[in-house]
Nucleic acid binder design. Structure first.
Lengths: 154, 154
DNA sequence: ATTCAGTTGAGATTGAATCTCATTTAGGTG
DNA sequence: CACCTAAATGAGATTCAATCTCAACTGAAT
């Protein structure tokens, strides 16, 4: 499974006359191994842990390639830096972000997407990328907030 | 109309024991006078044109206040810096961003919003802020792209 | 007029991301 | 296999938005 994707990466590189370097391979594996929405420093830290040293510049450059080729998606939750997510065969999805604990939840709704496309149709806009982010409180944090309030009442 | 809003700002300041300074008043007027989605440097430039000098720090600090009080909304179109928009009596709306010319179009769709709330309901997420951004080509740029392609065919 | 918490501005600082450039390397060719 | 060159890497400098620091200033309550 993972091997196949790695091969797809190699093929893509070759197609563009780019070279398969150990750094690129390591970065790719690390990413394909991660789920969720990591940021560049998470990667850096991980490499350091394994006593690999790959420079910041190389990581950024490789990520750009991976984004271009569609292996990785760059997401921005307004934190002042970018996060990335690995695009498995994963279908398109959107995000809910808990403002309390920072956790990111993925959700997907076909109709929501269609609804947006319909709106674009009406105004003659040709969409290429949709961003839907819902910020708020996840159910766990809602409970904690409720508890906190109860405590304060006493 | 504008006076009323300025009064609302003054009242809000007083309520929080904040002072009404000339800088804050100028910033507020400049903003209430602007439509569309400006960034901090636009403001800076405008003040300089009028031979007013208000420091960057003060502008950022005042914007924070205005965002807190709901007079201004901070938006992020992934350009690596923030934009702001003045919230008139304006209802909530979303954005389409043309990747060619950079223009930002507002649109509003009650049902789209309701649809999102329904999804939140189902998974038990309590939404406080929705971000919907559609990136793509505006109708004008679509035509230009089409023209360009025709030219290349010949 | 006095007082002081709140405010301002200049410049330093932070932090993400990009750029520079000398050195190294992947991988195609003879 | 050795050679060659375009592509890639890494260290550190640079950029740019945004925030912080702190001494000097000021709105507004008394």
């Amino acid at each position: 499974m993972k091997e196949e994707v790695l091969d797809a990466f190699k093929t893509a590189l070759r197609r563009e006359n780019l070279k398969l370097t150990p750094q690129r391979e390591k970065i790719f594996s690390a990413i394909a191994d991660t789920n969720q929405h990591w940021e560049v420093d998470d990667l850096m830290f991980r490499f350091r842990e394994e006593n690999d040293r790959i420079s910041r510049a190389t990581i950024y450059r490789t990520l750009d390639i991976l984004v271009d080729y569609g292996f990785v998606r760059k997401v921005d939750f307004g934190e002042g830096r970018s996060r990335y997510e690995y695009v498995r065969g994963k279908r398109y999805h959107d995000h809910m972000i808990c403002e309390e604990c920072g956790e990111v939840f993925e959700f997907m709704d076909e109709n929501l997407r269609k609804h947006q496309d319909r709106i674009c149709d009406i105004v003659g806009f040709q969409p290429s990328k949709h961003v839907v982010q819902i910020y708020g409180l996840c159910s766990k944090c809602q409970q904690e907030v409720a508890l906190e309030e109860k405590k304060n009442e006493v």
